[in-house]
């Protein structure tokens, strides 16, 4: 028996002719250049390895972002050590969900950006901050979508505005952008945003929220996401960027916490769930 998956269940070539491999369309099989040229250019049509939600919230003196460390291959838990929060410049964090290879491409683009920034700012003082990173990424993603070759991601940028107020904005693979005091990508926009908005009903209300309050709700969100999002894990990273109370104009702390665990898990609710698996009633 021929064990090539393409041959499974196939009648013999002598009778029916050769199998047309283009039907499966996994990739270009031929290696000679002529056939590669004849084959149409292929762009990303779907993400392969994916990261799930990024969630984020503003508070009085800064922002918190969180994302778990899982890279899924469909329903397979393929990687459990993917870092999806990226520090850019001194005081900005970028949280990325969606395709992991595109995430790594964006990571390289941002790296290059930082290098160029240093070359032309040898005297210092011109800092790459969150609004600048956000604008730049929105151009990158919009231009890629306009070439019909998107970077398959949804991104949240957190940091400070030029006037040192907290900054939080979103970009996705279409180039759509928006800002709010509570933001989440993917499943998080359904499961986490309602919880976050309970803390901050109006966008301006973040000024009444302390870091502790914000952090507690973010941890709650990560737990709820782990319960209900089948592509989420209970291992996550969390970044807190906070300006100091004494010198808000110049001083801030950037706290990157890795390998956090979703705490206080309780699966008692699971036994009451009906309608899934073997318990149909």
């Amino acid at each position: 028996m021929n064990h090539d998956p393409f041959q499974w269940g196939r009648p013999s070539n002598e009778t029916y002719g050769a199998y047309n491999h283009h039907i499966a369309n996994a990739s270009v099989r031929e290696t000679d250049h002529q056939s590669l040229d004849n084959f149409p250019k292929m762009n990303t049509q779907q993400p392969i390895i994916t990261g799930t939600s990024v969630i984020s919230v503003k508070f009085k003196d800064g922002v918190i972002l969180a994302a778990d460390n899982l890279g899924s291959y469909g329903s397979l838990l393929r990687f459990n050590n993917i870092e999806r929060l990226i520090k850019v410049g001194q005081e900005t964090v970028v949280g990325i969900s969606g395709d992991i290879s595109d995430l790594q491409q964006i990571e390289r683009i941002l790296d290059e950006l930082e290098t160029t920034e240093e070359v032309y700012d040898s005297d210092g003082g011109h800092n790459l901050r969150a609004p600048h990173v956000h604008e730049y990424l929105s151009r990158v993603l919009y231009n890629r979508r306009s070439k019909m070759n998107p970077l398959w991601n949804a991104i949240i940028v957190g940091g400070f505005n030029d006037d040192r107020t907290p900054f939080l904005k979103y970009i996705d693979l279409l180039g759509v952008t928006y800002g709010a005091s509570t933001l989440a990508t993917g499943f998080g926009s359904h499961l986490a945003v309602p919880l976050l908005r309970q803390l901050i009903p109006n966008d301006v209300d973040y000024v009444n929220v302390s870091e502790e309050q914000a952090r507690k709700v973010v941890e709650d969100c990560m737990r709820v996401l782990f319960y209900r999002d089948a592509r989420a894990s209970d291992k996550f990273s969390l970044v807190t960027i906070k300006r100091s109370a004494e010198e808000p104009d110049t001083s801030y702390t950037f706290n990157f916490e890795k390998e956090l665990k979703v705490e206080n898990q309780s699966w008692r609710f699971a036994k009451d769930i009906r309608g899934y698996g073997s318990q149909q009633q």
Partner: peptide
């Protein structure tokens, strides 16, 4: 080659990929 029996597979046209387009638009209301 001898005469082959026509089948659905072999009558597939060569080099035409299955089209699955990325939708570059959305509606933001």
């Amino acid at each position: 080659m001898n005469a082959t029996v026509a089948s659905e597979y072999s009558s597939e046209i060569h080099s035409v990929p299955i089209e699955h387009r990325f939708n570059p638009y959305s509606d933001n209301g």
